[in-house]
């Protein structure tokens, strides 16, 4: 379990990490990256599974079920769409990518 100040450190460091990652991305990759980050927050699936796992009453189970359903859609859809977009970037015949994007 992560509590209190330790969580604050994680929030802070993860925040800086995200900032660093995006600040060096060329415009060419903005849409795939938005899609990729959309996939990454699909990790909510793990939380949704736990939410359904701890459910005790029917109403909690129903909401937990919806949570897993939606989260799985986020994770799988985010992956498929990002993968499809990035697949296209392999078709460049040239190795040299200097100059065009900085």
């Amino acid at each position: 379990m992560i509590e209190g100040l330790a969580a604050l450190y994680i929030f802070l460091l993860a925040g800086f990490t995200g900032f660093e990652i995006i600040s060096r991305v060329p415009v060419i990759l903005h849409t795939p990256l938005m899609s990729g980050s959309n996939f990454v927050h699909g990790i909510v699936l793990v939380g949704a599974m736990i939410a359904l796992g701890i459910a005790e009453t029917t109403s909690q189970q129903v909401i937990g079920f919806i949570a897993v359903l939606l989260a799985a859609g986020n994770a799988v859809g985010g992956y498929v769409v990002t993968e499809r977009m990035l697949e296209m970037f392999k078709t460049t015949g040239k190795q040299d990518n200097k100059g065009a994007h900085k």
Binding site: E3, I10, G15, L33, V40, V44, V46, A51
Partner: peptide, 28 residues
Amino acid sequence: AVGFEGYVLGNAAMIIAGTVVGSAGTLL
């Protein structure tokens, strides 16, 4: 939101991934 709910569940992966996306997305 995912980062916050990660804290609620004490789940490090959710906190990190959610917050990274939160800050990257804000900058974007």
